Computed example of a mutant assay.
Amino acid sequence: MTDISQIFAGAQITLPSSAALGLDASTWLIDEEVYDNRIDGVNEHMSSPSPGTMPSGWKAKYLCHDLHNPHTEAFMRVFSQCPDEGTERFPPHIRAQQADPSFEHYEAKARKAFQQGRCRSVPPLLGWGQSVQGEYRPVPGGYITHLVWEKVSGEVLSPEFFWSLSQSRRDLIRDKFRIAYQEILSFGWVPGGQHIGKIIWNEESTDLWISGFHISLRTEKQWSNDVLAHFELIKPPPRGPCDPLLRPRGSWDKWKW
């Protein structure tokens, strides 16, 4: 498989089959890069109740399609280990000492759990691969992870669109969202940075999905209306300049639904 330094529009990425995930081998043609950025080695305080070391790496997202079925559009996320800052020009055998071939980001763990459990509330996984970098790559022996999930038919919700809808339509979206969120809670995972942009809504079919798991969090929490507030699906009442900021707890009578 290919690390981020070798991926460009037109590149082909072949991923293996996985019996555990119910995935056939597949080849994906890269259409365009959505973004890429470097992640310096840190402790995963946001991702784990027991912080552990995360090696330095690159994270990138691409729009792609199935080489043998061009109508199947998808997103691909690639995680690839990179040398620690200041060691990029060290000889390969020195950089290889940083290699962590088995490291797996929380997004990969979450999406694999959803796939194995047949979760219907997140876009389905279409491809997965875990490999290591070759002898002359940035970190010889370092991890590479590929995740491909379906580009579902719908639009990312925005506050402007949501609050332009009728009361009955907003109620429908909130009901669908609650069902979807309760399902992902049953797997013990939620997306980090919770906000309305994590929700994909198909206005015609009324299908709803939750996405945006590039930062994934383990959780044992249960459903509450706090979640609606965090995802901007309800609004706090107006307040004066001296009024305290209302937190999403307690009575919801004065909130806008």
Rank of each mutant, 00 (worst) to 15 (best):
H195K: 14
E150R: 10
A19H: 14
I39F: 09
Q167G: 12
F8G: 12
L233E: 05
G134F: 08
T206N: 14
A180H: 03
K112D: 07
G240M: 00
E232H: 08
L233A: 01
Y35F: 09
T87L: 15
C242A: 14
F90K: 12
S211I: 00
W189E: 02
S216K: 07
V132R: 14
S211Y: 00
H214F: 12
T145N: 06
F162M: 07
K112R: 10
I234P: 06
E104K: 09
S18I: 03
Q167D: 14
S47K: 11
R120H: 15
S121C: 10
E183R: 01
R89Q: 15
T206G: 11
Y143T: 09
P238K: 05
W163E: 00
A110F: 00
E155S: 11
F79A: 01
D36N: 15
H195Y: 13
G10P: 12
Q98S: 01
A99S: 05
L67F: 01
G134I: 09
R178V: 13
R249S: 13
T219R: 07
K254T: 15
A20C: 09
C64G: 02
G129K: 02
P124L: 11
D24H: 13
S56M: 08
Y35C: 01
K198M: 09
Y143C: 11
Y181W: 00
V122K: 08
W189F: 04
S17Q: 09
H230I: 06
H230N: 13
L165T: 04
R89G: 12
P244G: 00
P70S: 10
R239N: 10
N202H: 08
S18K: 05
L228A: 00
L217P: 06
G10M: 01
G127I: 01
R77Y: 00
Q116F: 03
A180Q: 04
D100W: 04
G117V: 07
H214S: 14
S17E: 08
F162E: 04
P244M: 07
W252V: 05
S56D: 09
L246T: 13
G197Y: 07
P49T: 10
G192S: 01
E32L: 13
P191A: 02
M46V: 14
P92C: 08
Y62T: 05
A74W: 04
W209A: 04
P123C: 06
E160D: 11
Q130L: 14
S216V: 02
F79G: 06
P123A: 01
I215P: 07
G192V: 03
A20D: 10
C242N: 15
Q81N: 06
L21P: 11
